Computed example of a mutant assay.
Amino acid sequence: MRRRTGLAMAGAAALAWGEWLNWRWSRALVGNSGGTAEAVVVLGYRNPQATANVINRWRVRAGIRSMAADSASGTRLIFSGGATTGGAAEAQLMSDYATSVLAFDGTVLLEDQSGTTWENITNVIPLLEDVDRIKIVSQPAHALKARAYLRRQRPDLAERLVRADDYRPGEWMVVKPLLALYGLWTLRGLQAGERKPWL
């Protein structure tokens, strides 16, 4: 009985830790930029099959729900990701899912040459020059890494970063501890100031 209680407490602690860390990452390097023109950048995940995989499908849904209701008509949805496995580009697969499955009929732009997160940011910069607010959508650790890269490449554009709706309490809860561990590993190259919430 004691062992079961201990395991249950350890499991609950792991879930709470994963939830907290993902919540924290979702609030790092974002501000309160105003204005009406908005860009939502959805980063792709390696996708060997001919249709969007479960991770890319979730990212598309998170991107669409990240669009501010009061500026939806002035928002561009940017899918970023090249063909990392020899098939179709991640950006194209995500766009196809958004338009054909989710019936999204807003403005969609594709960046289909990137093979890394650094390239994602480099290649979408020309599509962000004239917007007031920028949202980057992915799992929280990956989105934070991308925001840090934008800050390094174009600090002026990074001032326009605002929160996306890619973190929700309880969503992906069972795997959030694993996402948190993986995130700690992938974010090891970030500076301390790039990990702290601005808000």
Rank of each mutant, 00 (worst) to 15 (best):
T5C: 04
G6Y: 13
G6A: 15
A8S: 15
A10F: 14
A10T: 15
A13M: 06
L15M: 10
W17M: 09
N22T: 02
W23R: 10
R24F: 11
S26P: 11
R27I: 11
R27M: 13
L29I: 14
V30G: 07
V30K: 05
N32P: 04
A37D: 08
E38F: 00
V42D: 01
N47L: 06
T51P: 10
N53G: 15
R57C: 13
W58A: 10
I64D: 12
R65P: 02
S66T: 06
M67Q: 11
D70C: 04
S71P: 02
A72I: 11
S73F: 10
G74S: 12
T75C: 11
L77E: 01
I78C: 01
G86T: 08
A88G: 02
A89P: 04
Q92G: 00
L93M: 06
S95R: 02
Y97S: 06
Y97H: 15
T99W: 03
F104D: 05
G106A: 09
G106E: 10
V108R: 06
L109R: 02
D112K: 04
T117D: 00
V131C: 03
V131I: 02
I136N: 03
I136A: 02
P140L: 12
A141V: 07
A141T: 03
L144F: 13
L144D: 07
R151G: 05
R151H: 12
R152E: 08
P155Y: 03
A158L: 00
L161H: 04
V162Y: 00
A164D: 03
D165L: 07
Y167E: 03
R168K: 12
R168V: 09
W172N: 04
M173S: 11
V175E: 10
P177T: 10
P177R: 14
L178G: 08
L179R: 12
L179F: 15
L181W: 12
L190P: 10
L190G: 01
Q191S: 05
A192G: 08
R195I: 13
K196I: 13
P197N: 03
W198E: 12
L199F: 03
